[in-house]
Design a binder for these strands. Sequence first.
DNA 1: GTCTATAGTCTGATAGAC
DNA 2: GTCTATCAGACTATAGAC
Lengths: 192, 192
Amino acid sequence: MDAAMRGDARKETPRSRLLAAALALYSRHGVNGTSLQMIADRLGVTKAAVYHQFRSKDAILLALLEPLVSDMREVVERAECERTRTAQVESVLTGVIDLAVRHREVSALMQADPAVPALHASQSDSAALSERIGQLLLGPDPEPGRLISVAMLGSALMMTGKNPKLAAVEDEELRRQMLVAARRLLGLRSRG
Amino acid sequence: MDAAMRGDARKETPRSRLLAAALALYSRHGVNGTSLQMIADRLGVTKAAVYHQFRSKDAILLALLEPLVSDMREVVERAECERTRTAQVESVLTGVIDLAVRHREVSALMQADPAVPALHASQSDSAALSERIGQLLLGPDPEPGRLISVAMLGSALMMTGKNPKLAAVEDEELRRQMLVAARRLLGLRSRG
DNA sequence: GTCTATAGTCTGATAGAC
DNA sequence: GTCTATCAGACTATAGAC
């Protein structure tokens, strides 16, 4: 794999440092509550230096969301290939929990920040992926109770990683416990 | 009860209309994504007319949160008076679900909007109430699994009401189903 | 890649007439 | 209670020197 690196995970570049700073500020103050000046100040540079890396503020948000959206698409498509309802639910549940844990902050941002739907009105639609995840968990003709359980699960999975009390919990532990709790919430038996 | 009305529920006043407009905009665009001009436009008046009702933008948000914060305090204080752990959990769970359903939009705002913690740094602290709710649900020396279940429950309860798929569900139905789901999530037996 | 400087717009908030 | 008019400051974004 060469210099074309995906997302922000590869190496310490000016771009990746900028994305990390932006994510921290977006998480705390929201996208609309964060100015380019704040991002520049945190990096110790000027606004113009920020604009050298990204052509607009939207582009920064898009770059932050892209790895998560990409992974979401993969999870959804894999789950939709399963042939039994049970296997679909199992696949999407483990997949989404894995996402939510690996991309803790970005998940909460995508779920809760009003700037995200405003942005994706024109871009690769995260809302459509969330919708497909919901459908996979709901199945056909869901009862009201199921509808409500799935709605609760959606918020819980995407927002929980942001909880400061869980900051010290390691990924594997968090993933395992969230899966157990999610199964209880949906009324699934634990896997033997 | 005379003209001194609490919150926004009492009657159709200019003030209550303004709060309703602000809540709708805050829910969709976030507090920081909503300008006073947008609120004024929605009411068909000018910004100056808005400033006649509220001395600042913060004051509008504070007025929106006040009824929820007040009800939260009542729920927490009542639950803390219970003498057994089981009764405490039962009390806080039913109380919070009732809140979250009655104040659907405001609950999501309080839980997720970055403007709320920024505001309550100086005002009657909703964060402290959320903390006490968490403590009541956790109990002393919680295991990691319990910690994570309660974190998930917190997000789920406060955010679920905002879900557009549940907009048509009536309060009583939503309350009942959320209680059942919350009990499953926490591993409590359903009440006979 | 980073800077200074600035354009043009919108922001929250105020003053004062009606 | 609502208006017009205005303020000072912050905002995103651009231009061009180094």
